[in-house]
Write a protein that binds this DNA or RNA. Sequence first.
RNA 1: GUGGACGUAGCUCAAUUGGCAGAGCUCUCGGUUGUGGUCCGAGCGGUUGUGGGUUCAAGUCCCAUCGUCCACCCCA
Length: 456
Amino acid sequence: MLSKQFKKELLKTPRGTRDLLESDLVIFDEIKKRAEELARYYGYHKIQTPAFEHADLFLAALGDTTDMVEKQMYTFRSRGGDHLVLRPEKTVPTMRAYFEHGMQSEPQPVMVYSVGSCFRHESPQKGRFREFTQFDLDILGEDLAVADATTIRMFNLIFKEIKIDATLELNTIGDKECRPIYRKELVAYYRKHFNQLCKDCKRRYKENPLRLLDCKEPTCAELKQKAPQMIEYLCDECKKHFKSVLEFMDTLEISYRLNPYLVRGLDYYSRTVFEFIVTIPPENEKEPARRLEVGGGGRYDYLGDVLGGRHVPAVGGAFGVDRVAEVLRQSADLEEYKGQPPRVFLIQLGDAAKKKSLYLMEEFRKAKIPLSQSLSKDSIRGQLRIASKVGADFSLIIGQKEAMDGTVIIRDMDSGMQESLPFAKVIERLHSKLKSVPFSKRMPKAEFSEEDLNQL
RNA sequence: GUGGACGUAGCUCAAUUGGCAGAGCUCUCGGUUGUGGUCCGAGCGGUUGUGGGUUCAAGUCCCAUCGUCCACCCCA
């Protein structure tokens, strides 16, 4: 037995994690289901990689971005001494699986999707957890712009399907040819204005110049407006590629906003980058509307070279199931995400009836009658209370008398009308009753006016 | 790592200048020994996050600590 003090500390999930209860999971599952249906239809195949990988896999892929590796990854040693890490994302594992299973000798491109937890040791805040669920889509072994367009289109379709109003932002960050040139220009520009930069930007200037474009400080924002933009420095190939992506967007009638400040920090990224943004209205008038990134991705043509020593042009992205669920919870009509209440509630009174009902439950299951019950309650009153609380349309009542003469009472929970039938007829009768009571009629907490009551 | 707000029952929150720790919801049981929703009654549920200090007396004041949320940093 834990002491009370320890209970307070231990009987809760660790920081940045949480339990998902049924009311959360019906939403999660529905999101995953709709995304999966779309992905499958468009030719993606499901894969599942382990929750942890060799730490060196990520070290190799991410390069020497020590902040990410040291501070934000859950690394640990196995008993055998392996240096492992809880996966912080799924692009790298996907590429790892591509090589491990020789997918380069399958017809190209290889299209895969996956859904599962990722882990980052960050300080939690709204929509950001240390364990979170990502839905990933990737196209490996294809450098044509149509793959970029397909990826973006998939997320566009998915968000439409789950009724989330997300804005697409697009940019290109060039390739190995043109990006270094641009970066040099950018650094040269900021060098001239170095003294005006905010404290953070002075650090970014050294560590990750492209991130300078991300700063929200007023003076920095002003500076970046006059900063050189990637688009002016694109090589011919990249220009052609990006133009082609945009043409596909027009063809598919997907609206987008070009955001020249959208960047990805890591070296293996190239060309197309995109994000889907949801604007959340402010809770009170003083606060500005918030931008929540619900998904994003891009092309990563160099990851294959880094990991497998082989050029595998690829494009992919992910959306955060947690964030999407959060947005849905605040905005959407959640009716269709609510779990369906059991339609029939089985009530038993007395030992003989309880035994009988235990047997009957399996018969009802085979007959596909959606049944619920509370076998631990004995009073009819208590059982009926639960039946109405869970929103059952009908109750089946089996008491001593019914158990003896082989009948069941069917009670219509709306009207209170009851009829007694032999066991053999009950299933057939229920099927027709369930069909005749439409979903819309079901109101768990209905309130009746006097007129209604008089009619009964 | 930095800054701000907040920690009282399972949940939402009260508690006056420091003066008996409370309400609503939920849950359990009963009002009706075989009939639900509304209603009524009763009950369960607390070391007021933790530790220390001031005081006759601390949920309240002070210090420390832990935790949660929010923002920053970071964002694969």
